[in-house]
Amino acid sequence: MSKVPPYGKVKEGREEEILDPEIAILDSHHHLFDRPHLRYMQEDYQDDVNAGHKIIGTVYIETQAFARVDGPEELRPVGEVEFANGLANKMTSGVYGPCRVAAAIVGYADMTTGDRVAATLDASIAAAPQRFRGIRQIAIAHPDENALRFLTHRPPPDLLKSPAFRAAYRHLAPRGLSFDATVLHHQLPELAQLADDFPDTLIVLNHAGLAMAMDSGPQAREEGFQLWRRNMKELARRPNVVCKVGGFGTSYWGFGFNERTDPIGFRELSAAWRPYVETAIEAFGANRCMMESNYPNDGRSCGFVPLWNAMKYIVQSYSAEEKTALFRGTAEKFYRVDLSLAETVHEKTRA
């Protein structure tokens, strides 16, 4: 059991100087929800954004929050899309700050329903026609049941291989929708096969492929890293796959920061994360990588300020063009977001 309460490090590190404060960031992966004992809503995220980094927009990612409680089962996930789109509309007023929260939205659909998923997709598009960009259904699988203990929603085993999933998956590309894939590193070959079988469907790999090292010793960690590295390089050969670089605050990586009660700064984070960040960018290239906060989930391990400082510190020697791609450009392109006006408003607000 973690010594730190859920998301207990969220506000840590705000005394740190903001590295490269001029870098504009499109946070490509964050969540909002209001559950018993776990609440992280727009005002909480705004509080983190206002801590100093130049977050000009975000991609809202589903957690099966705010689903409808009645009506047809396949339409219940649309409630979360409606929530996120309503929030996005509110944020365009500028009253709540210049950051365009939920500028793009990735919702949930039950991909085990085969062709019936079409109703979910079409209703989600109708609910957020300017922002709905794709769906995510977590596909994490592991032979050790204990490895799944942090999942709030358990996916069916062998989800990516199931005929029903593949029948549902065929409905994405004709609608211009992508699939956000959350898997562990040993599942990356399955994802590569999916990319090969459906070359017209864009896959966005979440959390850099989660090199599972939770509850692992040094030798197992090194073996896992090498397998992850090989699998990432092989997956990157598929041009229809892009990679989110982040999620390192989750327990799966086994860094142990979530178990500590002392403050953790960006230098310590960057030292631990660097091999994974650099490997992911080397495999996919900056133009196919996008940085993410995975907040508030990564708040179990580090504060919002140190998290982004660590990411900036790791890539400090990269070119200006590469940094632009990593922190905003790739996400803008693949989620089809235009934040040029939001950046202008941001600059006027800060002036």
Results as ranks from 00 to 15, higher is better:
2 S>M: 09
4 V>H: 11
6 P>M: 06
10 V>Q: 09
10 V>E: 03
14 R>F: 00
26 L>Q: 05
27 D>I: 07
37 H>L: 07
37 H>S: 13
37 H>D: 14
41 M>I: 11
45 Y>N: 04
49 V>P: 00
51 A>Y: 02
55 I>V: 15
57 G>T: 09
61 I>K: 06
64 Q>N: 03
65 A>M: 02
70 D>E: 12
72 P>S: 10
77 P>E: 07
82 E>W: 01
85 N>W: 03
85 N>I: 04
88 A>Y: 10
91 M>P: 01
96 Y>K: 12
101 V>Y: 01
101 V>M: 14
102 A>P: 02
103 A>E: 11
110 D>Q: 08
112 T>W: 05
113 T>M: 13
118 A>W: 08
120 T>N: 10
121 L>T: 14
123 A>W: 10
128 A>S: 12
128 A>P: 06
129 P>N: 10
131 R>A: 08
152 T>P: 00
153 H>R: 08
155 P>F: 09
156 P>F: 04
158 D>A: 14
162 S>M: 05
167 A>H: 07
169 Y>P: 00
175 R>T: 09
177 L>M: 07
178 S>H: 14
179 F>H: 15
184 L>D: 02
184 L>K: 09
186 H>T: 15
187 Q>T: 12
189 P>V: 11
189 P>S: 09
189 P>E: 11
190 E>R: 08
190 E>I: 06
190 E>P: 01
194 L>T: 13
195 A>K: 09
195 A>T: 12
196 D>E: 14
198 F>Q: 09
199 P>C: 04
203 I>R: 05
210 L>D: 02
210 L>T: 14
211 A>R: 12
214 M>S: 07
220 A>S: 12
222 E>M: 13
228 W>V: 10
231 N>Y: 06
231 N>F: 03
236 A>M: 03
236 A>C: 03
240 N>M: 05
248 F>S: 06
251 S>K: 13
257 F>R: 03
263 P>D: 11
266 F>E: 13
266 F>W: 15
274 R>Y: 06
276 Y>Q: 08
277 V>C: 09
278 E>L: 15
281 I>L: 07
297 N>G: 02
298 D>S: 08
303 G>Q: 04
305 V>K: 01
306 P>V: 05
312 K>C: 02
312 K>R: 13
317 S>C: 01
323 K>R: 15
325 A>Y: 12
327 F>T: 11
328 R>L: 08
329 G>T: 14
332 E>L: 12
333 K>C: 02
337 V>Y: 05
338 D>V: 12
339 L>H: 10
340 S>C: 01
344 T>A: 11
347 E>T: 15
347 E>L: 13
348 K>P: 00
348 K>S: 05
